[in-house]
Design a protein around this nucleic acid. Structure first.
Length: 388
DNA sequence: TCTGGGGTCCTAGGACCC
DNA sequence: TCTGGGGTCCTAGGACCC
């Protein structure tokens, strides 16, 4: 036991919240179509249109979000819509309306910012919130502030969310899942063995299907079973970095800070064709699509005021195999014609015998446009300086 | 009638430089 | 002129997340 000094008495305990909107896209749609509440509803398939029964769907879309009644039929996100239609043909299919989701995303995040200054974006429908120094963030382990946030978000948006509060992001993320929807779950370090160890390993953020399969082959299914493995043994199985990480997360250790600001690394556009296309026979159509993707990426860069130096293409073939080719140029750009020319060179390095299912264009190595101009000017100046 | 679109981070080999 | 070790950049692929 460490010596307790006078200052420790008022030292706040680190409390991190994870807030996750309940069935976000579908819930936003239900604000527009309240008569569909309590029915199985599925959002997905980007082609626009009116609500219709899922049984009539033909195409390559996937489920983006399913309401809880739809989930009862085994429908879940990332599932192909054709398969979802087999499980629940009477479900109502709504096309995704990302402008609306972005609008409600801004709204609920504005509400949170009024109560807590330190918020980390994790995509359109999730955030981490540092409760440690926020008003009420320490009361009842964070429950009071969590309930306040839930209520305020509901009043201002009509949307519900689930919140987990815990000593770190890892546990908070797991906690927010435990009582969905409309749940508030408060966890402490002492809850590790009873609340976290019984969970399946794949519930941990960062353990995906591949890692989970490897773990299962080693006879490890739950977080508790993972915690019983020696760290050195895990490092032998998974490499030093991953082994150490697996050991740490199984014991609930995570010191990642809440990151309130980050710069984008890349911007990309991609599209899956309605039918697989052949590089020669569908050359004209592919060319049109390719140019449009380049223009869209350029517009995205310009809108957000970024330029990038590395331009790449992504191809997915009819057998689902994926390849990428990229090329770095000297001067960062946001020009559609430059992007199109360089991406075209990348495409020439790719094998094009198989039919294509998907084509994508990506720009990475981003810098803010104004900074890039300033830095380039400075670099230009320095060229004129003597080396010594 | 399988399997979207937009991201992040990590690894690993080779080039190139000091 | 037979033999280094870092460090950084570039490219390709893979795992994972929302």
């Amino acid at each position: 036991m460490a010596t307790v000094g006078a200052s420790d008495a008022i030292q706040p305990v680190r409390r991190i919240a994870h807030l996750d909107m309940d069935a976000f896209f579908a819930s936003v749609e239900l604000l527009r179509f309240p008569e569909l509440r309590d029915l199985p509803v599925v959002v997905g398939g980007s082609r626009s249109g009116e609500p219709r029964e899922l049984r009539h769907y033909v195409g390559r879309g996937v489920v983006t979000t399913a309401t809880y009644p739809a989930r009862a039929f085994g429908v879940h996100s990332a599932m192909g819509l054709m398969k979802a239609a087999q499980l629940c043909p009477q479900a109502i299919l709504l096309p995704a309306d990302f402008d609306q989701y972005r609008k409600y995303s801004r709204l609920f995040k504005e509400v949170i910012a009024e109560f807590a200054p330190s918020v980390e974006n994790r995509g359109i429908d999730e955030v981490y919130i540092d409760f440690t120094d926020a008003e009420g963030g320490q009361e009842q382990g964070g429950r009071r502030l969590a309930l306040t946030l839930q209520q305020a978000i509901y009043e201002r948006t009509g949307l519900t969310c689930s919140i987990g509060v815990a000593p770190n992001k890892l546990i908070a993320k797991l906690a927010s899942e435990l009582n969905k929807p409309r749940g508030v779950t408060i966890l402490y370090e002492a809850d590790l063995a009873t609340k976290i160890w019984p969970l399946a390993c794949k519930k941990i953020n960062g353990i995906g299907p591949r890692m989970n399969e490897r773990l299962e082959r080693l006879g490890i299914r739950t977080v508790g079973e993972l915690a019983r493995c020696k760290r050195d043994w895990l490092s032998e199985q998974f490499g030093a970095n991953q082994g150490a990480w697996l050991h740490a997360v199984a014991w609930g250790w995570d010191d990642r800070p809440v990151v309130t600001h980050s710069e984008p690394v890349s911007m990309s556009r991609e599209t899956t064709f309605e039918r697989d296309l052949h590089a020669v026979r569908d050359r004209a159509l592919l060319g049109t699509i390719f140019t449009r993707l380049c223009e869209q990426v350029a517009q995205d860069l310009q809108r957000h005021r970024y330029v990038g130096r590395t331009i790449g293409v992504k191809l997915r073939f009819d057998n689902f195999q994926r390849i990428t080719r990229d090329c770095t140029i000297d001067d960062a750009t946001d020009d559609a014609r430059v992007i199109r020319r360089i991406a075209g060179l990348c495409l020439k390095r790719a094998p094009l015998e198989r039919r294509l299912r998907l084509l994508g264009v990506k720009v990475t190595g981003l810098r803010q446009r104004d900074q890039a101009v300033a830095t380039d000017a400075a670099a230009g100046d320095s060229k004129d300086l003597p080396l010594f």
